[in-house]
Design a protein around this nucleic acid. Structure first.
Length: 528
RNA sequence: GCGCUCGUAGCUCAAUUGGAUAGAGCAACGGACUUCGGAUCCGUAGGUUGUAGGUUCGACUCCUGUCGAGCGCGCCA
């Protein structure tokens, strides 16, 4: 819809302009402040310019009315135009709001270490990433989701050791001492019992088995993480193992060296990341010859870029923000365009329960499992609330609030609007097929505004996706639902003169609510 | 100390990315049930956008200072 409006205006004005939505719908559907920027150039007042420009649209097909107010030019769409869009959307729900963005995107997210279950802090990035995948693909981008599995390094050893110790303590009932940095928490004890069943009791009797336990535990943890994710409707297309990449280190290192941005000092190999704004140069090979963690990320991003996507997105926890500049520097040194990589930071989440703050440490046993919250409040509410806030703001909420089934729970409010639409159709005894050809014309202001709101979904999705700010989608769904509830309270439908028109209007609202929810991973309810 | 992110109604958050009178929900108070579901709707109240400057036709948005909060500052991952 917006595209055709832009084209129509461009045809007349013959120049670039900003198109926005007026604060108040009574001004019109779209507006442009172009007269302000032309004022200097033409040495005339914005109001005069706006008046003149309005005249150009007198014979427009898609605009019913073009007016100037205080220098703004306001456009009102014609009913034929809006009706045409609504009819298409109702009859082709799956194709509504589709677009043809021809860009491939590799989206890496979650990538939590396979050393334990996902906790609530992971949920934010997970929900954001998955929704970006859904919306992006609907808009025609080719978005591929990927999980980077950190299955190398000392943490794997630590996992093996932790299971081993837990087994000695809880299965063999031997006294053990727990070093501070070991993984604790019940899942480790559960794992130890499982290991006993699958691998036999003897596994805990010899320290030589620790490595075996670590491999075994890693696979178990990946399974666990996958099931945590699937409980909120998330599935990854690809998993990439860090460990499996290390045999490519020589290739990546060769590329790095060609950049002349590496040097040796004190027996270590460094990259000159300060040349690209990093705080300090970084070691990539230790003096004992072992590559650092950064080396793993260098190989991984080399690997990503070799797969030749148009764009790369990483969603990281905000505590990794200091890492961005060194990775970008490395990508540049590998000979790639680091600007193709975009890092989205998901800020910390603080959970409250009865005013009591939870601390989210993975090592202490004191973290909140994502699966517990899902069990408690449901996937839909979790997804909706996490998407409702900009990802870069600190989010705080009380778990108890999710449990309420009234308008304080937005997902409930939206579902209710959707269910109402369904209910009205049931009462009328009519189907979508019966009303699809009705013309939406001579509508009162409330109906016309509701129709227009429902047709905004495509541009909301595009805007939200392109700015990576999915709270725009949840805001939109809340506001569309509010409009529906308001309209419902003020206008009767069944048995009235306008019944068929309003049914079609409701059907359109239903399409946008249903599709909007679907694209953030929530299934709309037909009945409460 | 340095860096990143943030600061908007009592609380949780929006604000078309520099545009028209800064908006929702919760909490408070007052209204609407001969009803297509009142799980809803309407109204009242609540603001010097942390603070001081600057940039311009125009600033919550951009720049500088300052105060406050969170995070980061291994050759851990």
């Amino acid at each position: 819809m917006k595209k055709r409006v832009i084209q129509a205006i461009k045809d007349e004005l013959q120049r670039e302009f900003i198109l926005e939505k007026p604060k108040d719908l009574s001004f019109g559907h779209y507006a442009t402040p172009i007269a302000f920027s032309l004022a200097k150039e033409l040495k005339k007042s914005p109001m005069v310019i706006a008046e003149e420009l309005c005249k150009k649209f007198e014979n427009s097909v898609i605009f019913k009315e073009v007016t100037s107010v205080k220098g703004y030019i306001n456009f009102r769409l014609s009913e034929e135009f809006l009706n045409e869009y609504a009819t298409f959307a109702i009859m082709n729900e799956k194709d509504f709001a589709k677009s043809n963005k021809n860009e491939s995107i590799l989206l890496e997210y979650v990538s939590a270490n396979p050393t334990g279950p996902l906790h609530i802090g992971h949920a934010r990035g997970a929900v954001l990433g998955d929704s970006l995948v859904r919306i992006g693909n609907h808009l025609g981008y080719k978005v591929v989701s990927e999980y980077y599995v950190n299955d190398a390094g000392s943490q794997m050893e630590m996992l093996g050791l932790s299971i081993y110790l837990a087994g000695r303590e809880n299965v063999l009932h031997v006294d053990v001492e727990w070093p501070e940095e070991f993984y604790r928490g019940e899942y480790i004890v559960d794992l130890a019992h499982e290991a006993k069943d699958e691998l036999g009791l003897a596994i805990f009797e010899d320290e030589k088995n620790i490595e075996k336990l670590s491999f075994w535990g890693k696979d178990k943890m990946i399974e666990l993480i996958k099931s945590n994710l699937s409980a909120v409707g998330i599935e990854f297309e690809q998993f990439v193992s860090e460990k499996s990449l290390y045999n490519k280190w020589d290739d990546s290192f060769d590329k790095l060296q060609k950049s002349n941005k590496t040097y040796k000092e004190a027996g270590k190999t460094w990259i000159r990341s300060t040349d690209l704004g990093d705080e300090k140069d970084r070691v990539v090979i230790r003096d004992d010859g072992r590559p650092t963690y950064l080396a793993g990320d260098i190989i991984y991003h080399d690997n990503k870029y070799q797969r030749e996507y148009d764009h790369y997105i990483n969603i990281w926890g905000a505590d990794h923000h200091g890492y961005i500049s060194r990775v970008k520097a490395a990508i540049n040194f590998l000979g790639y365009d680091e600007k193709k990589l975009e890092v989205i930071l998901a800020q910390m989440v603080s959970l409250l329960k009865a005013g009591e703050p939870y601390k989210m440490s993975k090592r202490a046993g004191n973290f909140i499992l994502m699966s517990d919250v899902v069990k408690d409040v449901g996937s839909d509410a979790l997804r909706f609330v996490f998407l409702s806030k900009k990802s870069d703001t600190h989010l705080e909420f009380d778990v108890d609030m999710f449990k309420q089934e009234d308008s304080s729970n937005p997902i409930f409010y939206i579902n209710y609007a959707h269910a109402r639409i369904n209910q009205v159709f049931n009462k009328s005894g009519k189907t979508v097929e019966d009303i699809k050809d009705v013309k939406l014309e001579d509508l009162n202001d409330d109906a016309a505004n509701l129709l227009y709101s429902a047709l905004l979904l495509p541009e909301v999705l595009e805007d939200a996706f392109e700015s990576r700010q999915l709270q725009k989608v949840t805001e939109y769904l809340k506001s569309l639902s509010a409009s529906l509830h308001k309209f419902y309270n003020e206008n009767r439908v069944v048995g009235e003169v306008n019944e068929e028109k309003y049914l079609k209007l409701f059907a359109m609202v239903g399409v946008s609510i249903r599709l909007g929810l679907h694209l953030i991973g929530i299934k709309a309810k037909d009945k409460m």
